[in-house]
Each structure stands twice: as C-alpha cells, then as structure tokens.
Simulated assay, not measured.
Amino acid sequence: MPYVFPPPAQAAVPVAGSDAVFPVHRIYCVGRNYAEHAEEMGHSGREAPFFFMKPADAVLPVAAGTLGRMAYPGMTAELHHEIELVVAIGKGGADIAAAAALAHVWGYAVGLDMTRRDLQAEAKKLGRPWCTGKSFERAAPIGPITPLAAAGAIGSAAIALTVNGVVRQRSSIDKLIWNVAETIEHLSRYYVLQPGDLIFTGTPAGVAAVAPGDVLEGAIDGLDSLRLLIVEGAGG
C-alpha cells in the first residue's frame, strides 16, 4: 500500500566511536528524580517515580565535538535547561525486575530536557497536562550514545552543566532517587519497552532560564559531552 505522502525520516542518535546510529522509538522522562531538584520545584520526599513523554522527533542529536543549535521556541519567555543521564534501551520487555534491568540497556548519553517553564507552571496551576511545556520541537537535545560496555561505572559518575562557562548544575548519578535499574522496573510496569526507547532519568538542582546566544555544555563522566547554542527563532 503506498503512503499518501513520503513518511518522515527515522529519528536517530549518533553512536560514540561509530558510523552507526541508534533509531529512536519513544522518549520517556522521569520527573523530580533528584531530591534537591524536587525541593527547588516545591516538593520533597522520595515519591513514587512518575513519567511523561516527548515525541521521538523532539530529539536533537549533536555529534561528538560539534556545537549543536537549538532555535528558541515560540510561546515562551522562560526556556529552562535540565541536564540528564539518558538510558538507551536495546532489549524490550514488560514488568522487568530491577535485578534484570541493566540487561535491557544498550548504552548511555548526555541529554537535555528543555522545558518551557512558564507553560509548564501554568499547566500545573490549572491541573492540565504538561505537553506544551515539555513536548515541542527539538526539546530533547542529546549527545552520542556510548555502548554499555564502554560507559564505565556510570552509577557513580559526576554530572554537570555549564552555561557560557559558568556552572549551573552539578551532582552525581548516585544521587538519583530512583536509580537506572529501579526506573526501568517502574516504567516497564506501565509500558512495554522497545529497542530504541530513550529514558531521560531526571535532573539535578539548578535549573534556570537560557536565552539566544547562550552556549550550554553538559557532561557526565565517561560519556561524550553535549554542547548546544541557543539561537534566535521560533519553532525549531
């Protein structure tokens, strides 16, 4: 059966040290998964993990050693950065036990959960979904995915973000409220995970606004860094 128009290209992310690319199926995000970030957003305690999604084509892949470009999106005056460890799923499944979860991981990457914070805050106030605040064009910049075997001891890695050379966010992966294995266990109760899924695992404290001309650099020990320039323009 012919398509009525050509289908869009497959969203994909580069693989570190390879010409291969990782095809993206879905993008899942974990909310408030660092205690200090939960506190700065007005919450506290180790709440049960909760999830939201971005469309696969929100991914903005940035190759190693390059400066990506993200157009400042429309309908916001408060675009925030959120640096995150991204888990790339290589083996699908449902109801995955935490003890078996890492067998489903293909690799890791540095990602940014870019957020139209003013729209998200308004949605929260009205009890509405966060989609306009979280799910928009190029809302998920990501660096190359490092295969699991080459990523090293990611569970204790440092994570940091600078804006124009000034540190905004700094923490370590072992401060996740729900670690990678636990996150996969919880998420796979709600969704059948598939190869190609990406999980943005949550951001440390220090989220703040960026503006056109700002250069963001996200780093996690053992992974390729992610560099991003915010440029003028709406809609990506």
Rank of each mutant, 00 (worst) to 15 (best):
L102S: 04
F22K: 09
S18P: 05
L60G: 00
A149Q: 09
C29V: 08
D224I: 05
I220N: 00
D197T: 05
I177N: 00
A48G: 12
E84Y: 12
V166S: 07
A12G: 05
P55K: 03
A48S: 14
V86N: 09
A100C: 02
Y190E: 06
A77I: 09
G235S: 14
V87M: 02
R128G: 05
V30R: 01
S172C: 10
L216M: 13
V4F: 12
K175E: 13
T115Q: 07
P61R: 04
D95W: 09
L216H: 01
Q120A: 15
T146S: 12
T203C: 03
R168D: 08
H104Q: 00
M70R: 02
R170G: 03
G213Q: 11
R168A: 13
G111T: 11
G165P: 06
A149C: 07
A158H: 10
L119T: 02
E182H: 12
D221P: 05
A35I: 07
E122N: 11
E182N: 13
Y28R: 08
G206F: 01
S172Q: 10
A211T: 08
A64T: 05
G45P: 01
L176M: 08
I96Y: 02
A153D: 13
P129S: 05
V163S: 08
R46D: 15
S188Y: 01
T146P: 08
A103P: 06
P61T: 04
L60T: 02
Q10C: 12
K175R: 15
I177G: 00
K175H: 15
V167L: 12
L102A: 06
P23G: 05
G92K: 04
P6D: 13
H25G: 07
A64Y: 04
A94M: 11
I173F: 06
A9E: 14
F200T: 04
A38E: 08
Y108Q: 13
F51G: 12
P55G: 02
A100I: 02
A77Q: 09
A151T: 03
S172H: 08
L119Y: 02
Q194F: 04
P55H: 02
I142R: 07
Y191H: 10
G45W: 03
A98D: 10
P141H: 01
L112A: 10
F5T: 09
A219D: 03
K54S: 03
E137T: 10
D197I: 05
D197E: 06
F136W: 11
V166H: 05
T162Y: 10
A140T: 11
Q10M: 14
H43V: 15
C29R: 04
K175D: 10
V207G: 03
L229T: 15
Q10Y: 10
A63T: 15
G218F: 09
E185Q: 14
K91P: 06
G45H: 04
H81C: 00
G90I: 06
Q120T: 13
I230Y: 01
V21I: 09
V163F: 08
G236F: 08
E232G: 04
I199L: 00
S225H: 15
I154E: 02
M114H: 01
L67S: 15
N33S: 14
W106R: 07
